[in-house]
Design a protein around this nucleic acid. Sequence first.
DNA 1: TGTCAAGATAGATGTATGTCGAAGCAACCG
DNA 2: CGGTTGCTTCGACATACATCTATCTTGACA
Lengths: 112, 112
Amino acid sequence: MSKQPEGCAPLARDPLSAEQAGELAALFKALADPVRLRLLSLIASQEGGEVCVCHLTDAFELSGPTISHHLKVLREAGLITGERRGTWVYYRVRAEALGRLSAVLLPAEVPA
Amino acid sequence: MSKQPEGCAPLARDPLSAEQAGELAALFKALADPVRLRLLSLIASQEGGEVCVCHLTDAFELSGPTISHHLKVLREAGLITGERRGTWVYYRVRAEALGRLSAVLLPAEVPA
DNA sequence: TGTCAAGATAGATGTATGTCGAAGCAACCG
DNA sequence: CGGTTGCTTCGACATACATCTATCTTGACA
């Protein structure tokens, strides 16, 4: 539930400020775990764009609380959103957030 | 000096294998620190593409060993390369590595 | 209302990591 | 050859983090 960093020019355009670097590092930290990357990928690649948590827990040999913890990290980083519908909770990715990170990593390559 | 992961389709195309996720997580872990992001950005945004370590240590209020440690993490992740010329060591970014990571994060958005 | 199932939270624990000072290497210069 | 400077490696330490079990909350349904 942190504030979303703005568009943010590519790394290679200008040196990052300490503040920008801190915000970006928090996002990359959320991605810096194999389980979380697989969760994100499972959600993102799903037909319809959303996945029930029960399907995610089944896909790993990890305890429910551990999956729940990883989903919370991704959620608080702003990379996914969760919605409860009845008994189940469904997650979907925030494509803008991923796109923003992708843009930050683009090499400079003749800016103008 | 780990082996470079191959092109790797976007996260959103297909669910990542455990192995792919592990390799990617190692790369994102290297980016998951404010100091390393600023170092990378300082190097990448430099006119000429390379920076002397002495310039990098001057840019932070951190000890030399700490900067050296972070450069090593980036180097072993394959994100930068270092070259010694005489007294000084110069670093430059591996644009392909950054570009690959950028591509992985691209949202799917009508693949065909 | 009582019970059951799906998820989330809390607390504990082992491991990983960021930081430092001290020491080691490598290259220049008297 | 000895000294100085730039950078890396080593060892120590405090903090952060992934994982677990146990517990709590929420909703469905009899």
